[in-house]
Design a binder for these strands. Structure first.
Lengths: 145, 145
DNA sequence: TTACATGTAATCATTTTAGTTACAGGATGG
DNA sequence: CCATCCTGTAACTAAAATGATTACATGTAA
């Protein structure tokens, strides 16, 4: 299993929108950079819009970031594109046998441990911003896109 | 998406084996506690055996832990049941456009960030042992199983 | 009104998961 | 030795999720 690439594509889109802030780019343009279908991009952009990370108008090319790059964390994007449900990164097996002391109590014993592991991961994402990502990209390249 | 329940079932199996260490239990017995099919249990036990967490003999009921509960971390189980590939908790979209400076560099920029988030999660799992789980269960119940 | 954009539903192939059945082969006691 | 119970494992299935694709309704603006 693996967390959906919607997350990395979401980061890509946001970074690309900022990079092109002087020009109004269509979903087709963004799709060409990501290398996928424009409808896929529009679907993800709908999620980013719902999370108030971008502003898009129906029928009009050129989405804009709703916040500064430095005010958008990877966790914001992660939550926006809905790749992992709250406290459900790890799935539990359904209905273990309640007649067995292990079966009866294992889920309650394990769940807080799983949650703490998930939160540790999400905390790391919360401490990284899109500005960090952009700076790293800028280190390597300065050309037009 | 969600990490396979093989992980929680693996924890369940190991804990249950230890709980029943005085009696030789079959995969059918374990399956009844987990509430699944014996073949599913045997498949997961094959992985736990390969990771040297348990000792099982073909044809003979009664697997035994290869180590103490306190020497088996949740991370050991997690790796044994192969629920997440190394450094691939987050998936990347394939082949972004190399002609675009963002597309060209985004993956290299993002990957180490994803890896650090994954490692933070795995570190938490590495600091929890099956003994911790068992103690929590024992707090709630002391009956036979 | 024409051209081009977003929004979104419907469909599809692929992959993964978990369950199920079936059976080969090991172990053991009578 | 053989009947019985076990593990090991392959093959098949249903269900769910992902990402791609097509199609089209609707919005915008020159």
């Amino acid at each position: 299993m693996s967390i959906s690439s919607r997350f990395s594509v979401g980061i890509h889109i946001l970074t690309l929108i900022d990079f092109n802030k002087e020009e109004a780019r269509s979903s087709e343009y963004l799709a060409a950079s990501v290398n996928t279908n424009p409808a896929v991009i529009r679907k993800i952009m709908a999620m980013l819009k719902k999370a108030e990370l971008i502003e898009v108008r129906p029928g009009v090319a050129g989405a804009k970031l709703a916040k500064e790059l430095s005010d958008i964390s990877l966790l914001d994007v992660y939550k926006a594109v809905n790749v992992v449900k709250e406290n459900e990164l790890f799935s539990m097996h359904d209905t273990p046998n309640p007649k067995c002391p292990i079966g009866k109590n294992i889920q309650q014993a394990i769940e807080p441990l799983f949650v703490s592991a998930q939160l540790a991961m999400e905390k790391v994402l919360g401490n990284i911003t899109l500005e960090d990502v952009m700076k790293d990209i800028a280190k390597k390249e300065n050309t037009e896109c």
